[in-house]
Simulated scan of single mutants.
Amino acid sequence: MSLFWRIFLLNATVLFAAAGLLLLGPVTISTPVLLTEALILAGGLAAMLTANAALLRVGLAPLQRLTRAMSTTDLLRPGRRPVVSGHGEIAGLIQTFNTMLDRLEAERAASSGLALSAQEAERRRIAQELHDEIGQTLTAVLLELKRVADQAPSDLRPQLHQVQETTRASLDEIRRIARRLRPGVLEELGLISSLKALANEMAEHTDLTVERHFDSDLPALDHETELVLYRVAQEGLTNAVRHSEARRAELTLRTAPGGVDLLVADDGIGIGAAAEGAGIRGMRERALLVGAELVIGPAPGRGTRVRLHVPVKNGGS
């Protein structure tokens, strides 16, 4: 039955019931209207309106649930679908909304996958150019500075040595940036080694102390899943340094029921009510690529805790 006829019949039922009570009941209306008759009519009208409101609320409750679902849906946070309830057009509307969400999430995941693949390819290209072009150029500059310093007067050598150190530091920084753009350790030595290298790099170049906890019996993971885990860990530790004012962080990779868990927790000021930036949105998009669940919230005590649960079927991917 359509929504129009359901509402029409609900109202008609109430009106017919009121008309029947007036026709068959002992109530009569005088001219002028007596106080008792006015009170009886007012009570009957109130009862009729109450019954009509109750029936409409029951009939339209599925639409209210659908409205709440529409206002809270976030494609980066897939959640439960509204339950298909009601009759006729209402049930069809909820089913159509759920189908639309499935399609939008699939399209968002596909487009995010293409965008992130292009991003990784661009990172590899930039890292290669930094290593091959700028890195080699600075290496040549260092060699030339050494040759000039060996032949320069003794009073100029300290200054030339200072320029050499500055150039060497710039070369190291470029190599570090290239490694962050393209984690070669991940491709060559695997996920655990790359996470250890990431933690060591953070400890060397920042004031952040990183404690590492890695299970030894992790299931086999494909390259895409390992890259997602690495990038989420990298972004979590970077946020701890840049935004949380943290001094200590924990990086954990462990086996969990149905998959693996990556945990990044710090002792900083916490995320609070701050809006999610591009980094967190990027983590959510990466999580969707492998069907993972990302939860970001306060850490026990203080700070921020990032948890990424990656499902693994049949002990491996």
Rank of each mutant, 00 (worst) to 15 (best):
V228M: 08
A12R: 11
T31Y: 02
S85R: 07
G291V: 01
L35W: 15
G88H: 09
E285M: 12
V83G: 08
L21T: 05
A273C: 01
E224K: 06
L9P: 02
L156H: 07
V241K: 00
V232Y: 05
T139Y: 15
A149V: 02
T50G: 15
G258F: 13
E129Q: 14
E224N: 09
V185C: 05
A220I: 12
I269Q: 12
V290G: 04
D172E: 13
V33D: 06
R180K: 11
L237K: 03
A61F: 11
E276K: 13
V241D: 02
G190N: 04
E173Q: 09
I174V: 01
L55W: 01
L289G: 09
A149P: 05
A203R: 00
A249W: 06
A278W: 10
A152E: 06
G316H: 13
A106P: 04
Q128W: 10
V241W: 01
L93D: 03
L156P: 00
L262V: 08
A265N: 02
S317E: 08
P78E: 10
R175D: 07
L34T: 15
S30M: 05
I90L: 07
R286E: 08
N98E: 07
I177V: 15
A275P: 08
R231Q: 07
L60Q: 12
H205M: 01
D102M: 06
A54M: 06
I177S: 14
T255L: 15
L160C: 05
V310N: 10
L198G: 02
A118D: 15
M283I: 08
R77L: 07
A19V: 11
P32N: 11
L142I: 07
V260N: 05
L181K: 01
A140E: 12
Y230H: 12
I126D: 15
H213T: 15
Q136V: 03
I269M: 08
D266L: 06
I174G: 03
P32T: 14
D217E: 10
N239H: 15
T13E: 11
T36L: 13
A140C: 09
L56R: 02
L263E: 09
A91K: 15
A54K: 01
R281V: 14
